[in-house]
Design a protein around this nucleic acid. Structure first.
Lengths: 159, 159, 159, 159
DNA sequence: TTTT
DNA sequence: TTTT
């Protein structure tokens, strides 16, 4: 079965980074996508903004936490997950989020936040495909300098 | 900005069809997508099922309501929309759904529910791209026989 | 059946715009996507650039021809089409191209070519879904000023 | 940059499987996707079939070679690659293919070819994300029995 | 609640 | 031929 989401939008705030006991990072962002259309009857232009909670794990979480900022434009690919939890009143609540497995920063060169380009890695795509928790741990414990981000590059089939 | 979802899954129940005052249909389905993986540490196979609420409007709603059944396998493309509403306790609640704009029945000929193939249209893709509410209304008021479904075919660029 | 391509890349040259007898524009771009990975055996970083021929029709062709430039970063969605033709030697040749039905300029505000932002429309998505040649013609004959680009906005379902 | 293709279609012939000196399989299929639309001017229904050459490597190649048959319906995700080669006349030729990194068999239960269901694995998604050539080799040398196919399941992040 |  |  397929459960795939692709988003291009901007962060409404800086990323939030938390850490697991294992040392793995978990980064969460709020991403806005807006849709514009012209009402066929009234002819009015309309706009609607949708906010998405996007969660990154392991190596992706590190890169997202380090390089994304409020206002950054980003491409995200992942899957929908809805979590069930209980409110204080004992009632079921649901929260839907996007579990990201691919991320691509779209603010080229001077783009985005002022000092963004200072430590940005070359524009490229990061992903989590096939990453297990063990290798993720080792990635998470590697150096936080910019080149370390490249540890997450996809080892691909060399044909 | 981009907000796109693609799902391939099976219906957990027959579609629910409601009608607007204008006569337009609104069809809702519950779609299951499951994900299987092997835990890298324990080696165990795991499986997780995600349930999606998918909503179809206008011409798509008609086709979905007519041809999809509990257990049908379907491809859906659309966008994420989260609705905010108030519970009886006055607290904010959120419901996330997929607003479909393309649908593709995957139960081929002999496939799916027993008597499914009897009145199924040729395997094809239906979509709502660019459909305004007025044209949608006229589609909704057209005959309910199988060929009518074709009214929703995308008029495409003839090059 | 589904035949969908999504690309994010940069133009290798300015767009080429041609016109049909009907007045409709046809715009073609060459789009580079590059893939980077680290070879698992040698540990070397590798990079491979793929060039795509992307074709826009009707209203999309106008917007693409007007606002895209060499070096622009763009999101394109469309379908694969392979054309068969005959070389001078009488042998069959094949050319594969992407017929775009959605386009999204990713060079934000300050981004892209120097004077790009001067006449750029608000960042948004253009599409051709469901556009027939007749409506396309009328779009093509509308004024070429920036606001005209909005004529191509998707009329969407107002629920 | 992003270069992504998603196809749902049917095989025009049985898969072709070749083997690398390393023992890795390479499987190629011809996949048809068809598009139907109604001409807005003439009102005629039209149909166009596009044929795609899809190539699978490593573990995916094994599964594709074993379980797909002429007529099978399949979901494929991958990237576009155009190869340049020289005809006998010394002229450059180009061949475009889809390098698959995910595959999903859509013929449920009784679907597709007669004896398909006999040895089919549970309906699921196979992928090559992040597979390097070394791990691919070991997968290729594992047993060819049905359960072996599960070796290719995505080890995913266990949150 | 589907399906394999 | 783009870009980092």
């Amino acid at each position: 079965m397929l459960n795939k989401v692709t988003l291009i939008g901007r962060l409404g705030a800086d990323p939030e980074v938390r850490y697991m006991p294992s040392g793995d990072a978990i980064t969460t962002i709020r991403l806005a996508t807006s849709r514009r259309w012209k009402d066929r009857n009234s002819g009015e232009r309309k706009e609607e903004t949708e906010w998405h909670r996007v969660v990154f794990f392991a190596g992706l979480a590190k890169v997202a936490g380090e390089y994304l900022k409020k206002g950054s434009q980003v491409y995200v690919e992942g899957r929908i997950r809805t979590n069930k939890w209980q409110g204080q009143d004992g009632q079921d609540r649901y929260t839907t989020e996007i579990i990201a497995d691919e991320m691509h920063m779209l603010d080229s060169r001077s783009g985005g936040t002022a000092n963004y380009a200072d430590n940005a890695p070359p524009l490229s795509t990061y992903d989590n495909h096939g990453a297990g928790s063990s290798s993720a741990s080792s990635a998470a414990s590697s150096s936080a300098s910019a080149p370390a981000a490249f540890d997450d590059f996809d080892d691909d089939i060399p044909f």
